[in-house]
């Protein structure tokens, strides 16, 4: 019985990735750098700040998911065609929302995120001032 369970577990583990992915090879530019080093550096910098859509904790540069590979291929092809990285980011944000970018824009929903460090320093200064004054008095 135990052996059967173990066998079922092994089969299940082996079968899982097959079910979740296609059997097509990765897109040519998913794992191949661009010949032009400057363009590849641009593509890398962008890929490290674009969120993988299916793994969600990783950038597309870090992820081995198929869709991440296709996104890298898309980024490299567009960079090679002369498109600016920020235009590609904008194209993705237009489709998936600011969520897809690891560089949140400054807008109505994110201002607090950017302002928080300054606010905390100000609160700290005020608290320190109050406590010093009290001690002196």
């Amino acid at each position: 019985m135990r052996r059967l369970l173990l066998a079922a577990l092994i089969v299940g583990l082996a079968a899982a990735p097959v079910l979740a992915d296609s059997d097509m090879p990765p897109a040519p530019l998913a794992y191949t750098q661009l010949p032009d080093a400057r363009q590849e550096a641009q593509a890398q910098a962008l890929m490290q700040t674009i969120r993988c859509l299916v793994c969600q904790g990783q950038s597309i540069a870090d992820s081995d998911a198929e869709l991440a590979g296709d996104m890298r291929a898309m980024v490299r092809a567009r960079i090679a065609a002369g498109e600016k990285p920020e235009a590609i980011r904008a194209w993705l944000v237009r489709r998936y929302g600011a969520w897809v970018s690891y560089e949140p824009p400054l807008d109505r929903t994110t201002w607090l995120l950017w302002a928080a460090p300054v606010l905390f320093v100000l609160i700290g200064l005020l608290a320190a001032r109050r406590s010093f004054r009290r001690r002196r008095g």
Partner: peptide, 13 residues
């Protein structure tokens, strides 16, 4: 073949 139109629609799966 490379999910390009899927991405253009804003689809992720």
């Amino acid at each position: 073949d490379a999910s390009q139109v899927q991405m253009a629609f804003g689809s992720s799966g």
